[in-house]
Amino acid sequence: MEMANIYTALTDIFHDVFGDDTIVVSPDLTADDVVEWDSLSHIRLVLSVEKRFGVRFSASETGKLKNVGELAGLIQTKL
């Protein structure tokens, strides 16, 4: 899948999970930039990503993600 398509899908997921349509999803976006992005909503985010792309992540994979760019990269390796 093209990286651009991954970001389009991620944008929908972020808006859905955090209930905020103004979030702009870019590679350098981190949990510090989104008020509602705490360790628990991070789980909802990961589950939504798994469902949307039909992939599975291990705890260690999702635990060490630093920003959205790394998440998008991880998704691409699984597709």
Binding site: S39, L40, I43, R44, L47, A59, T62, G63
Partner: peptide, 10 residues
């Protein structure tokens, strides 16, 4: 293991 969630969120 991640967060002591008792069953699949699905």
């Amino acid at each position: 293991n991640l967060a002591k969630v008792p069953f699949s969120n699905t």
